[in-house]
Structure formats: C-alpha cells, structure tokens
Amino acid sequence: MRSEDLLSLFVKSASLKLHFERVSTPEGEHITFTGDDAPILLARNAEIMNALEYLCNRVMEKQGTRVTLDCSGYRESRAQELRLMALKAAESVKRLVRPFKLNPMSPEERRIIHLAIADDGSIRTESEGYGEQRQVVIHPK
C-alpha cells in the first residue's frame, strides 16, 4: 500500500468530497487536498489530516519515503501562528523572569517552536511530559 492508496480508500470509505494531488521531491512526497470537505480535514488543528499524515508515514517508512499532507495552505499558516506564539511567550518569560508552558503539541509543531526562538540567548527551551501531553517549556537562562 502506498500513501495514495491509503488516502483514496479513506476518502471513499468516508464518502468525503476530496481530491488530492501528489508531487514527489528529493525530500519525499507532498500531497495537497482540495474539495468541499477540506474543513473536515482541518478541524481541531487539522486533527484528521495529521492522523492521515502519521499513518501515511508509518506505511511508507519501509521504503524510506517521508510524506507531508497539506490543504488550503494550512501548514504555512499554522507555522506562522506557532512562531508568533513562541515569540510572545518568549517575551513574557523575559519580562517576568518566569518559565512559560505552551500547550501540548505534536513533535512537528514543537520543533517549529524550538527553532523560532533558538537564537535568543536570554532564554532556553525544553520539552516535558510524555506522548500526547508533551509540551514546550520556555525558561529564562
């Protein structure tokens, strides 16, 4: 089974109005969804699209292929939102000289947070908790 097979079967089983296009690059496959049911994929911080992406990656990892899914520019706008959250939280850590805990996030989202404020010498970031509950904490240095 390839990622397109998984996604076609899902769209068909769920009777969703969705189409997707796949582009292969040296870093892996990028699949973009369009269609009337796009909001279903993106609800609750793209819960369903992220679950599909995770499963596509588990299915494709034997072949060493990374899969990313996107829909309506969600990945980029979410990354911008996360970077903004990171900067605001970092500001509050510096002002109050007190650690700040962000909401639990996936590894991919935590990475965006860490990178967004990695160059700031007056704070440091780490993750704590396990599984679904793992969250970034920003500390004053």
């Binding site: 899902f10 769920a14 009777s15 819960e47 499963l55 599984g131 679904e132």
Partner: peptide
C-alpha cells in the same frame, strides 16, 4: 499500536472522521 499508542490513536481518529458523513 505505535509509540505511546500514536498509531492506534491515528487509526481511531480517521475512523471517527470516516463515520461522520455516514
């Protein structure tokens, strides 16, 4: 099941989505 149950949780999530329209 996957690490910390993430695979099983992802399957359950898409099952929930698959049942919505039906």
């Amino acid at each position: 099941i996957g690490k910390q149950g993430r695979t099983a949780r992802s399957i359950r999530t898409i099952l929930g989505a698959a049942g919505m329209k039906l």
